[in-house]
Design a protein around this nucleic acid. Structure first.
Lengths: 253, 253
DNA sequence: TGGCATTTCTGAGTCAACCTCATAGGCTGA
DNA sequence: TCAGCCTATGAGGTTGACTCAGAAATGCCA
């Protein structure tokens, strides 16, 4: 099945074919390990001969790169668009976190399909891609610092590594847990991350008793509320209640 | 050169050879990408024939597993030993963090040499290994919670993912930065992580009055509560009336 | 020590997958 | 319609993981 419809100009034809090969590869990578997907299989699914693939992509590695690039490209665009619609720094971070972890669990193969190669070359393609992606996060933080919403005594790169490192590790362990996990894991990871970013986890040694009392009361309420929310999500999942992302946000203003 | 010295018993001979092959592989993986290291090269360096390697390790993948296993085994032992010598929870975490990031930057190849395979199989070897490793961390946290040094309103697994996720991402970006990085990066990452764990990064709305911070927290909780209430009503309505339209799933496959 | 049985080792050969290249096919413009 | 050029093809080269029949070493016993 030549997935290429009717393309008129040369450029269109080229792009259609390139797209068909890319899509074919992405679909196969989503189903099988990269090593287990042969160039022959990719070519067959794209409706071209094996040799043709090499007219569009220099090698298998290059093809994998291209697939990953396409993924990150979309990811960056969506992240930037989402941030533009939100003002509050806290909410922005929450959105970025949820977006990242959701997309990563959806397209799980990106996490594993990643051959060490793609990352092991400094200043390589993948590195550059990642940089432009996290630039969205960097801007959010910088603006937050300017506004006084974010402390400025932790280096930006440390924050960035914490943020994405946490989420990716969470996505990974969620997927590895054996049983099928879903987006609820991701959401819980996001909530935990945000909580820690807001107030840490290590309790102050002592003193500041008033502050402690106040916050611990609030903590109690928050913890209880979170537990209720968790249970609610469970019920929702069971009954298949659809819920738009917007309705999770309260009245706001 | 048969790296095997003089071994007397059968068992000793077997272990010597297995060790030689493992060491040979680890040394080569440290220098080149896993894919670029051939079984022939590993055999040659170990002083045996290619076929012999297959008497000790079922396949190349199994050999890579064994190398990684050896690494994690040592890592776990050192981590446990270090923790035993420290009492304070904060110090323990700091030690674990520094130990992890240091060893990871030293043996950088573990980060990249890791074929997706090793992780992609749920309940696989690598997963089990990782579990026993992070168990050290888990124990530290649990004891910290018991002692009241760690807040108990963030799930343990979220904390774990944050901790190791941050450090691994930091190690990775440190290595990828292009220019040669050293352990100072790691130490800075550890310091940043500890700072955030201690007090978070997101400032309360207004840092002058507790009152304001408190009310804004109240707003957040109220908003969340309202959202939960809304959803609860929805679920009640749906399950209360009839369970006719049970599935209204989002864009499925 | 010599001879036989068993275990261990060997490396040439098989197979599979990436990649190449000589040839075939089709599009474009006169 | 046809020459010229660009694109596509798939059989074949090359490489590297893995196998296996035979060689070598080791153990055992008299």
């Amino acid at each position: 099945m030549p997935a290429t419809g009717k393309a008129k100009t040369r450029r269109q034809r080229v792009e259609a074919r390139e797209g068909a090969i890319l899509r074919s590869a992405a679909e196969l990578f989503a189903r099988h390990e990269v090593d287990a997907v042969t160039m022959g299989a990719i070519a067959r699914r794209a409706g071209v001969a094996e040799g043709t693939v090499y007219l569009y992509f220099e090698s298998k590695v290059a093809l994998v790169h291209a697939v990953v690039e396409a993924f990150y490209s979309g990811l960056t665009e969506q992240a930037a668009a989402g941030v533009r619609k939100i003002r509050d720094t806290r909410r922005r971070l929450e959105f970025l976190a949820e977006h990242h972890v959701t997309r990563l669990i959806e397209q799980r193969y990106i996490l594993f399909a990643f051959p060490g190669k793609s990352l092991s070359e400094p200043d390589g393609e993948a590195y550059r891609l990642n940089r432009t992606y996290v630039a969205v996060f960097d801007d959010v933080i910088r603006e937050g610092v300017d506004r006084g919403e974010i402390r400025d005594d932790v280096p930006l790169w440390v924050l960035r590594d914490m943020f994405y490192g946490s989420l990716e590790y969470a996505a990974r362990t969620s997927l590895l847990g054996g049983k099928q996990r879903d987006r609820r894991d991701g959401r819980r990871a996001v909530r935990g991350l945000m909580a820690v970013l807001e107030r840490g986890v290590i309790r102050p040694k002592s003193d500041e008793t008033v502050e402690l009392a106040r916050s611990s009361t609030m903590e109690g309420i928050t913890a209880r509320l979170e537990s209720v929310a968790d249970r609610l999500e469970l019920v929702e999942a069971r009954t298949g209640t659809a819920r738009s992302r917007a309705s999770r946000r309260a009245p706001g203003k």
